[in-house]
Simulated scan of single mutants.
Amino acid sequence: MNNQEYIERAQRYVQLSNQGDLTQIQRMFASHAVYYSAYFGEYVGNQSIHDMMCEFFGRFQDAHWQVEEYRCIEERGVEFDFVMTGTNISTGESVERYGLEKIFFTAAGLIEKIVVCKAKKPHFKQ
């Protein structure tokens, strides 16, 4: 796979997240994948990640990620700044979170590792 294909896979992951398609998202992860979020902690293994996402999307059914640019980093990695918005259905509170996400892929194109870092509001082009 080349850099553009990794970027396209990262874009697909965000698109599926915006659609809340947890079945398709789960298929994108390697069985041994690791997901670390400064907001939610660390999850190891495809099923653990899927369970965390089911819980998250249960609370934020309208979650949406805005991303304007995807950048290749390191070997088989893609990073992007994001703004996540949604409503916590248990409290009715609107949430807006900013972050930097890094996705690393296996040679076969499955997600092997995700790292989500807190960040200041990104300066997207208007």
Rank of each mutant, 00 (worst) to 15 (best):
Q26N: 08
F104I: 12
D51W: 04
C54M: 12
E42W: 01
Y6D: 05
Q47C: 01
E93V: 09
V44F: 01
M1A: 13
M52E: 10
K120H: 14
V14A: 13
V116R: 04
G45D: 05
Q26V: 04
A63S: 15
E42P: 00
R27A: 14
N2V: 11
L110V: 00
F29R: 00
I49V: 07
T91D: 14
G77V: 05
V34E: 14
I111V: 14
S31R: 05
G41L: 08
R9S: 15
V67A: 09
R97M: 13
G109W: 09
R12M: 14
E75I: 10
G45F: 01
D81L: 14
V115C: 10
Q66R: 15
F57V: 00
F80L: 07
L16A: 03
Y70S: 08
G45S: 02
A30Q: 08
Q47F: 04
V67I: 12
Y98L: 07
Q4N: 13
C117L: 10
N18R: 05
C117V: 03
M53E: 11
I73R: 03
Q4I: 09
H32W: 01
G86H: 11
K121V: 13
S90P: 00
F80G: 03
C117D: 13
Y6V: 02
F124K: 07
H64L: 11
M53T: 00
E79W: 10
F29I: 02
E112G: 03
G86V: 13
Q47Y: 07
S31N: 11
L110N: 05
P122D: 07
S17E: 12
S17L: 12
I111W: 03
R12I: 01
E101S: 13
T91I: 10
V44H: 12
L22G: 02
M53I: 01
Y43F: 15
Q24T: 00
M52L: 10
Y43N: 10
Q11P: 05
